[in-house]
Simulated scan of single mutants.
Amino acid sequence: MPSLRRYRLPSIILATAIALGVTVVWLAPNADASELCGRTDAIDIAGKRHVVMNNVWGADTAQCLTVDQDGGFTVSHSEHDKRTGSAAAYPTIYQGCHWGNCTLDSGLPIKVRDIRAARSSWRIDTADADGRWNATYDLWFHTSADVRRSPDGAELMVWLDRAGGARPAGTLVARDVALAGAVWDVYYADWHWNYIAYVRVDPTDRVDDVELAAFTRDAIGRGYLDRDWYLSGVEAGFEIWRNGTGLASNSFRVEVTS
């Protein structure tokens, strides 16, 4: 939901290709793991081409992540028990910038009108998790190229799965919208920035080469996103209100083409 989110590993399997404005980073799971338990703890992955954050921003309750050496992460401990309001946390992996903390060689920021494609693959495991949570992309937009500050343009979420009655902020503005090979319900709220959430009607635990630019184009058509704003960060993780122990992000890839 809309939020003021604040927020060393060797042996990394990494493939990076930079050509014609394209940056690709693939992260696969590894048994060796580190632990994040501080509210704002984060780990730089693959020479800071990605960052994994514990990111407990909406509650004082405890949460820990185990992060393998190649960027997969699991919520190993959660004491969250929020019944109303915003989420307690958004543990995530991201590429680009998050409140001034920017990864390297991300292809971001990029002006929205210059995005030719923004493809991503993400695989998650929610089988062992109960509670109230979602599994979602979170795309952030700035109104200028100065992205080492808080976002001021838009937040665009793409919900793949949810449990326990989790729902987006704002108002339902459209049902059964066909985008990127699936069907979505669309929510909108006007907060500190424009908030747009696309909720998958049929939940899934994986997407392969999903075209995130399809959602930006749809948001432009609805008047919620400006072509002259900048995509500054692509995040993938779990908004958690209650429990969430066992939620796992197994692999993540994002490719932005200008």
Rank of each mutant, 00 (worst) to 15 (best):
R6C: 14
Y224R: 12
W26P: 13
T84H: 12
P151S: 02
F141Q: 00
G246N: 09
E255R: 09
A129I: 02
R5S: 06
D228I: 00
M1N: 10
R49K: 06
V201R: 14
V52W: 01
L160N: 12
D146I: 08
P203N: 04
A89T: 08
R83S: 15
P2S: 08
D205G: 10
D125N: 15
N54R: 08
D228Y: 04
N54S: 07
A33G: 05
W133L: 02
T92I: 15
L20W: 15
N243L: 01
D114F: 01
S3F: 08
R123W: 08
T204Q: 12
T216Y: 10
D130F: 03
E35F: 12
V56A: 02
A59F: 00
A236F: 11
A46G: 09
S144K: 01
Y224E: 07
H98Y: 13
T61D: 15
G244E: 00
A154Q: 02
Y7A: 14
P109V: 00
K82I: 09
E235D: 05
T23N: 13
D81Q: 15
G244C: 03
A33N: 07
A19K: 14
D60I: 10
L20R: 15
F215R: 05
R253N: 13
G96K: 04
G237W: 01
P10R: 00
V199A: 11
A163P: 09
G170Q: 06
W229A: 02
A180F: 01
F215T: 06
W191D: 10
R116Q: 10
T245A: 14
A118D: 09
D161Y: 07
W241C: 05
I220G: 04
R206S: 13
A169K: 04
V234L: 06
K48A: 10
I220V: 11
D60L: 13
R148L: 15
D105R: 13
I110V: 08
G153Q: 03
H50M: 12
S11A: 14
A42I: 07
G131D: 00
W26E: 14
A127T: 10
T103P: 06
A163I: 02
D226Y: 08
V22M: 13
A42M: 07
E79M: 14
V158I: 14
A154K: 04
L139P: 00
E255L: 07
P10N: 01
T74D: 09
R49C: 00
W140F: 05
D176M: 05
V210E: 11
I13L: 12
A174R: 14
Y230P: 06
T245M: 09
R119M: 11
S3D: 06
V56Q: 01
T126R: 06
Y90H: 01
K111W: 03
V22K: 15
E35C: 14
W184H: 08
D161T: 11
M157I: 13
Y94R: 04
